[in-house]
């Protein structure tokens, strides 16, 4: 007030109060606006994109190589042959991509909370959960997706499945549901970040357990192991259960045969549950001291 006006401040446009009318913005639109921006940034840095995608391919590929060598020597694992295990592997990896491509940014939660960036999300008129998912885009997820699709196409030929329209629909739905299961579990783990400050190892552990032990028929883990990997860590719902339906192997399940289709329902439920857990725990957010 006591200072001389700066250049332009005397301009005529500045003289009337600025109170524009604001439209309602739907959460979905807000999410897409942010996601599109993240994608644009990622595609602006091509070398990083390629580099990180390659890293993901290598990581998932090493597991593929391992399973390949194993089957090369032993011909079958838990009664499943090469084509069957290949299909299971491919379904798991595609489901993983369904989780990581749109929802992979749950992994940023520790960083967001500890660096105080979560404050910034709370200052915007958009759900912080959606903002987290669109925070950045991990190009590694494109590596998961491309390897997953390639392996799926190959495995679909190798697997002893007659690909009727129904089977293809089941395959697609099962992969989507499997991705939702994985995302839901990771959301639930992310929700712990609001209390624990660091859930990174927990999430990596669950992620690698899914990746490394996903390609086996559940039977190899024994009764206790199978039940644990169904009801404690819902690995079975990601790919194994629907795979038994596709491969006509539901008789080996410890559960009734219809359970093979249950993942189609369990997927959305786990996803919703994980989201609710996140929202619920986010009330405990204590912004770090400035």
């Amino acid at each position: 007030m006591a200072e001389p006006p700066a250049d332009g401040a005397a301009g005529t446009a500045a003289r009337e109060p600025w109170r524009p009318q604001l439209r309602e913005v739907s959460p979905l639109r807000a999410w897409w606006v942010l996601m599109a921006t993240s994608l644009r940034v990622v595609f602006a840095y091509r070398s990083n994109l390629l580099n990180t995608a390659l890293g993901s391919v290598a990581l998932q590929g090493s597991q593929l190589l391992f399973v390949g060598v194993l089957l090369h020597r032993f011909e079958q694992v838990g009664g499943w042959g090469f084509g069957e295990v290949a299909l299971l592997f491919a379904m798991r990896l595609c489901a993983h991509a369904v989780c990581t491509v749109p929802f992979g940014q749950h992994s940023a939660i520790d960083f967001l909370i500890n660096e105080g960036d979560y404050d910034r999300l709370l200052l915007r008129p958009v759900s912080p959960f959606l903002q987290m998912l669109a925070w950045r885009f991990n190009p590694g997820s494109l590596g998961d997706l491309s390897l997953g699709v390639v392996v799926l196409v190959v495995a679909a030929r190798l697997a002893p499945v007659e690909w009727t329209a129904g089977a293809v629909v089941l395959l697609v739905l099962a992969i989507l549901a499997g991705g939702l299961v994985e995302a839901g579990v990771q959301f639930a783990l992310s929700s712990l970040s609001f209390r624990l400050r660091a859930t990174w190892s927990l999430k990596v552990t669950v992620d690698t357990t899914f990746a490394d032990f996903g390609p086996y028929p559940l039977g190899v883990f024994g009764t206790v192991g199978s039940l644990a990997l169904t009801f404690v860590l819902p690995l079975a719902f990601i790919a194994y259960l629907p795979a038994t339906a596709l491969l006509g192997r539901t008789d080996e399940l410890l559960l009734p045969a219809w359970a093979a289709y249950s993942s189609l329902l369990v997927g959305p439920l786990v996803f919703w549950g994980g989201y609710r857990a996140f929202v619920h725990q986010s009330r405990h957010y204590d912004s770090p001291a400035g």
Binding site: F74, R197, W200, S201, L202, T205, D212, V220, F221, G225
Partner: peptide, 27 residues
């Protein structure tokens, strides 16, 4: 971070049990 230490501890134990199960089944 306590939770990290506990988790990494449990993680390696779980992994060991799982690889044992897989390899027993493979054979």
């Amino acid at each position: 971070v306590r939770s990290e230490v506990l988790v990494s501890g449990v993680a390696v134990l779980v992994r060991v049990v799982l690889v044992i199960l897989v390899w027993r089944a493979v054979y």
